[in-house]
Simulated assay, not measured.
Amino acid sequence: MQVRPRGLTYLPFMAKMPNPTEAQLFGAIQTTPKKMASTGVTTASDMSVGGNFGVDKEIAIYKEIFAKNASPIRVRGYLYSQAIPPGYKGVKPNDGDDQLRFIGIKYITDGSTQGLTAAVTQP
């Protein structure tokens, strides 16, 4: 299931981008914390857990990586609101431990300056 966010102004760009494979996403989640740790970062947040393959699949990827102690940093995850199915009961607030914890939901309600969807006073 692909649930990548799509904004009004960057929709044509996103339509041309290849979707990541599950292996690519797994690799990114596994290698990025190592790069971050090498610069002194000890904790990071993923603000869109579920944005590529749905929340359950991406939570499972994170749990697999952390079960193997493959992350040198702590991660705090926020579920991507548009990827949460109605009636979802898979993750409760603060599920996890000191290394991996899912602590919130990322809602997008007002656009962004990067995506040129924000309400501004001039075009």
Results as ranks from 00 to 15, higher is better:
residue 2 Q to K: 07
residue 4 R to A: 12
residue 4 R to C: 11
residue 4 R to N: 09
residue 5 P to L: 10
residue 8 L to K: 15
residue 10 Y to V: 04
residue 11 L to T: 08
residue 11 L to A: 15
residue 12 P to Y: 03
residue 12 P to K: 07
residue 13 F to S: 12
residue 14 M to Y: 13
residue 15 A to V: 10
residue 16 K to I: 00
residue 17 M to T: 09
residue 17 M to Q: 12
residue 17 M to G: 00
residue 19 N to P: 03
residue 19 N to T: 10
residue 19 N to M: 13
residue 20 P to M: 07
residue 20 P to C: 04
residue 21 T to K: 07
residue 24 Q to C: 07
residue 24 Q to N: 11
residue 25 L to W: 09
residue 25 L to G: 08
residue 25 L to M: 12
residue 26 F to H: 12
residue 30 Q to W: 06
residue 30 Q to F: 11
residue 31 T to Y: 10
residue 32 T to F: 07
residue 32 T to E: 14
residue 34 K to H: 14
residue 35 K to L: 14
residue 38 S to R: 06
residue 40 G to H: 14
residue 41 V to C: 15
residue 41 V to Q: 09
residue 42 T to I: 08
residue 44 A to I: 11
residue 44 A to S: 12
residue 46 D to F: 06
residue 46 D to V: 08
residue 49 V to W: 05
residue 54 G to M: 05
residue 55 V to K: 00
residue 56 D to Y: 00
residue 56 D to R: 09
residue 56 D to N: 10
residue 57 K to A: 14
residue 57 K to R: 15
residue 57 K to Q: 12
residue 57 K to D: 05
residue 57 K to V: 15
residue 60 A to Y: 04
residue 60 A to E: 15
residue 61 I to P: 04
residue 65 I to S: 07
residue 66 F to A: 05
residue 67 A to T: 08
residue 67 A to K: 14
residue 70 A to N: 07
residue 73 I to R: 05
residue 73 I to Q: 04
residue 74 R to K: 14
residue 74 R to T: 09
residue 77 G to M: 03
residue 77 G to D: 01
residue 78 Y to E: 03
residue 80 Y to F: 15
residue 82 Q to T: 09
residue 83 A to T: 03
residue 89 K to E: 10
residue 90 G to E: 05
residue 92 K to A: 13
residue 94 N to M: 13
residue 94 N to L: 12
residue 94 N to P: 01
residue 97 D to T: 02
residue 98 D to E: 14
residue 98 D to A: 11
residue 101 R to W: 00
residue 105 I to R: 05
residue 105 I to W: 01
residue 105 I to F: 03
residue 105 I to G: 05
residue 107 Y to T: 14
residue 107 Y to G: 09
residue 108 I to G: 04
residue 109 T to I: 11
residue 111 G to R: 10
residue 113 T to K: 14
residue 113 T to C: 03
residue 114 Q to H: 10
residue 116 L to Q: 13
residue 116 L to P: 00
residue 118 A to R: 15
residue 121 T to S: 11
residue 121 T to V: 13
residue 122 Q to L: 03
